[in-house]
Design a protein around this nucleic acid. Structure first.
Lengths: 185, 185
DNA sequence: CGGGACGGTCTGTTCACTGAACCGTACGCC
DNA sequence: GGCGTACGGTTCAGTGAACAGACCGTCCCG
């Protein structure tokens, strides 16, 4: 549906995958989920995505079983990756790897991924060079890379994402919100 | 451009990758290239893609350096993967792997991939279980899988793709064209 | 020289994305 | 309890891309 009737006729696992995650914005929403974004407004701020499209993508991801919608407070939902959503990690990883390989930012990567248990940076294959295993997404930590200072965005979600934290760990933005009183218009 | 202005602001390798290959149809065009499709009309028949869109995607892939346009006869172009295009293989593989894992056709896979040198079927990681290596795309062979008979499509390109051949090897459709005289409207 | 395949371009219609306004609920504060 | 604001959506007009199908020039084949 999302990608037009033709995809349904492409009897191919790639086409089936694209049916589910090939729509515009979908992959970036999932990427944000892995980074720890979970609330409607945080996606909105971080992605600059039209509200209607975000609503649509979140709904679809929930019905497809990639995300779970959870009311953490009456009327306020958060969206968390399910096991099915987590299984998308290799796809995101291969995309990220290719993107870096083909068009790495001049100042170096803005985010690095490290194995939580031992602290080593992951290699290109997503494996931990020290432990020799490919850690689960839950055991991966995000850290600012050499290019972090040159980040293009400066919203509160982006800032929060640059402080070291585990993948999948919902961002704690409340602390920052209280310190915000100083600056900003 | 292709995916909207916002992607440019997503300082992330995934967004950069999607800028180049995230547009609708693009991945499927590249998939067909890997399978051996190389001519305008063959893409058209196999993908059921609007002509204008195909023209657009091929042009874009050529200018991005993923494909090389070669005139194999005056006025007739063929499109071949460049090294840069070949480097997309891990992305396609992760997509295919996920698609099969999540929604495998009931009768089994329609296409299998085997290592040309030893003949073994590749495992989920794309590695050859016999040789213990991950073969280059050029050393991978396509064969019909158990679900091949239930293929949804029945154009001449689809049929050609089900006869064993190497990946990247341009399809030889001329032979079939001569045998076609029997059936079809 | 005529017919068909091929590789495109052009055109009108439909559909999805976009941006902005609007709305109801829940909390924080007094 | 009343008021303001943040949040999470929905609604709606405007725009651009995708779609289906007609059209067109070139080359090959008989």
């Amino acid at each position: 549906m999302a990608l037009g009737k033709d995809y349904e006729l492409q009897d191919c696992p790639i086409a089936r995958a694209l049916e589910l995650v090939g729509e515009r914005w979908t992959i970036l929403v999932i990427r944000d989920c892995f980074l720890g974004v979970s609330r409607f407004n945080d996606f909105l701020v971080h992605l600059d995505i039209p509200r209607a499209v975000l609503t649509n993508r979140l709904d679809r991801l929930v019905t497809e079983g990639m995300l779970e919608r959870r009311e953490y407070r009456p009327g306020r939902n958060e969206y968390l990756l399910t096991d099915r959503g987590l299984s998308l990690w290799p796809i995101l990883h291969s995309l990220a790897e290719w993107g870096d390989q083909q068009a790495a930012p001049p100042a170096g990567r803005r985010r690095l991924f490290a194995h939580t248990e031992c602290g080593s940076d992951l290699d290109a294959a997503g494996a931990c060079p020290t432990c020799g295993v490919v850690p689960d997404a839950g055991d991966v930590e995000i850290r600012p890379g050499p290019g972090a200072e040159l980040a293009l965005r400066d919203d509160r979600v982006t800032r929060a994402l640059f402080s070291p934290h585990r993948i999948l760990q919902p961002l704690e933005l409340t602390t920052e919100r209280s310190t915000r009183s100083s600056g900003s218009s």
